[in-house]
């Protein structure tokens, strides 16, 4: 069956060991985690986990039910298929030789991102956006030379009715 990407937003008790229960559930049952983002919500006792996983329609039903079955899980929301906004932030360290600095800055300008660190031979760029924007930026920077990147993983929220 066809594996598709699913974005899940999971509210859990903000307690030690909860993340390990979720990671253990995925490794123990052979599901995969593409990205995972965890932080406290407005209510300090509750954390939101935003998870991207790849699964077919039967597996995703199981994944959601298994997540819900964990005693520390309060709510499991699947955003995929709903109207939602998603963002990811990436820090990109690019090689910035004198001859291509101008080009880098032009790209930064077009994508409305920021240079957050300037070194002797490198710029670090901060970019926020959805997957499409980030991939487009990375493909433009790749020929110039990317030294390393750090991604936050996707965070997402459903849209409220207008």
């Amino acid at each position: 069956m066809n594996e598709e990407k699913h974005i899940l937003s999971i509210l859990v008790d903000n307690e030690p060991g909860v993340l390990s229960r979720i990671a253990g559930l995925f490794s123990g049952r052979g599901y995969n985690i593409e990205s995972l983002c965890v932080a406290e919500t407005l209510e300090p006792k509750i954390s939101r986990i935003t998870m991207v996983t790849k699964a077919d329609s039967i597996a995703i039903e199981q994944i959601k039910k298994q997540l819900h079955k964990l005693i520390n899980t309060i709510k499991v929301i699947e955003l995929t298929g709903q109207d939602f906004v998603q963002r990811e932030m990436v820090l990109v360290k690019v090689t910035a030789k004198p001859e291509n600095r101008a080009e880098i800055l032009r790209i930064v300008d077009i994508f409305r991102c920021k240079v957050v660190d300037v070194g002797k031979e490198h710029y670090t760029i901060e970019v926020t956006g959805d997957e499409g924007k980030i991939n487009a930026l990375l493909s433009l920077l790749r020929p110039i030379g990317i030294k390393e990147i750090a991604k936050t993983g996707i965070i997402a929220l459903n849209r409220e009715p207008k």
């Binding site: 060991g17 253990g24 123990g28």
Partner: peptide
């Protein structure tokens, strides 16, 4: 033991 039994208990506590 909490780590060891996480996948074979309904729930556990330290």
């Amino acid at each position: 033991i909490v780590g060891i039994t996480r996948p074979c208990t309904k729930h556990n506590y330290l």
